[in-house]
Design a protein around this nucleic acid. Structure first.
Lengths: 252, 252
DNA sequence: TAGTGGTCTAGACCACATT
DNA sequence: ATGTGGTCTAGACCACTAC
């Protein structure tokens, strides 16, 4: 390393910290361009790879986005729209002001693609649905798009024996969707459980959700139980974490 | 680039994909060491920086961990233990088998450090608690540690006027904690709302939670409402996403 | 066309962990 | 002491975007 030591931390981290501070101070607002590789090379007298590394830190933190041939820009974090259980439960959870702002209104969440198939149950699906190893399940895969940008991948599992011959095995399940059809079978869900985790996307998920680097996914696994407490559906969802704020409400 | 083209994608991505596939195929199990920079340079005939870039991809995906002087290892993903709302609500949400396994048992979640102070309300806290701009709030900051590893940062805001002179302004709030003290003030919470997001940690959060690269944080903002529907507390939590599975249950 | 970020090379020195 | 990953340099060519 050339020159003095200036604080016991790598150059690229110092540069990253400086840019991060400038962004937080509002010197570069959302969507604005910030100094690129060449600028940093000049102003900090470092090699290209070092400047890249500094910008890479901010990219990995998800606060900055690089566009080929254009520059590096402050990411515009607009949480967009919340996924709620509103449509599943009695929607009385709006009390008080929210911590995070969300674009509530007129955005259109549409199903982008649907694929239905009958498959052998995965170990997880079999376990949750109480099926034997290798039993058949109906698998419904969907991708949801918000204003043209994919934001949610959904994989729903139902016992094939339960749904065979119903519209559930069709791409279009009709009004009310899968849950309405289960209702007609006398197995309508009365209770839901959702489990939530987060991690970085695999290459395939990043691809299908068109995720830039530095954006994690949120995994939501919803299990629907019928009146007898039997699990009738397991839905594993993968969400673009930058597109969703999840909300839950409950009584003490 | 030297040599042929082999598939229209960068070398480092090909190498990363190859290693990823090998890991998924079980060739390298959790905790096992995988080929390092020098190995990849030799076997793939690339420069050091290219080998590093390949390993960097897997690190950013959180499936691999580099240890200085030792090597690169497959990360041992153990979700550890779920945070529930169990202790806040009637704990009847265990029906059926869970989608993700969690180490349920004897791990000890302890408060690592507590700091209480009176501050000017942030814009968010003021908005949610219905306070005027700049009004005073009691802020309780805590860090939770699971078996020695920090896993949760909690920042709780309460109106200073409400809690002044009570144990809530002390590090030790006594049996039952903050909510029990609010109860004694006649403002015990009867309803909760939780908002959930995920993103990559900032440098400070990564530091305080001792997060390796490639691990996102989950943000949980809990608002507690009293019997009149007034928000009495806002708690913003930052969780190590690799340590938690959140669970919620609700009726249709 | 000029400038940008993306990929890649072939070296180098360092702090660190394991032996 | 050896080998590891971490940092850094000084070049290079490319594809892409914006003008």
């Amino acid at each position: 390393m050339s020159g003095r030591d200036s604080g016991r931390q790598p150059k690229y981290q110092r540069i990253a910290a400086e840019l991060r501070a400038a962004i937080e101070a509002g010197e570069y607002g959302p969507g604005e361009r910030l100094p690129g590789e060449n600028d940093l090379m000049a102003t900090h007298e470092v090699a290209r790879m070092t400047a890249r590394q500094a910008l890479g830190v901010l990219q990995a933190e998800g606060i900055v986005e690089a566009r080929k041939g254009a520059g590096v820009f402050v990411r515009d974090f607009k949480p967009v729209r919340r996924l709620g259980i509103e449509r599943l439960a009695h929607g009385q959870w709006g009390e008080g002001r929210s911590v995070w702002e969300t674009d509530v209104a007129g955005r259109s969440l549409v199903v982008d693609s649907v694929a239905v198939s009958e498959e052998e149950a995965t170990a997880v699906a079999a376990g949750v649905l109480g099926l034997a190893e290798g039993e058949r399940v109906c698998v419904r895969r969907r991708r949801y798009t918000l204003d043209g940008k994919p934001v949610l991948l959904s994989t729903s599992h139902l016992s094939a024996g339960l749904v065979v011959g119903t519209p559930i095995t069709q791409p279009d399940t009709g009004p009310g969707g899968v849950y309405a059809r289960l209702e007609e079978l006398g197995r309508g869900p009365v209770r839901f459980r959702e489990e939530i985790r987060s991690r970085m996307p695999g290459a395939d998920e990043a691809d299908r959700l068109e995720l830039p680097p530095g954006v994690p996914v949120v995994l939501v696994a919803r299990t629907a139980f019928d009146a007898d407490g039997v699990a009738v559906e397991v839905n594993e969802m993968v969400l673009d974490s930058s597109a969703y704020v999840l909300e839950y409400g409950f009584d003490a």
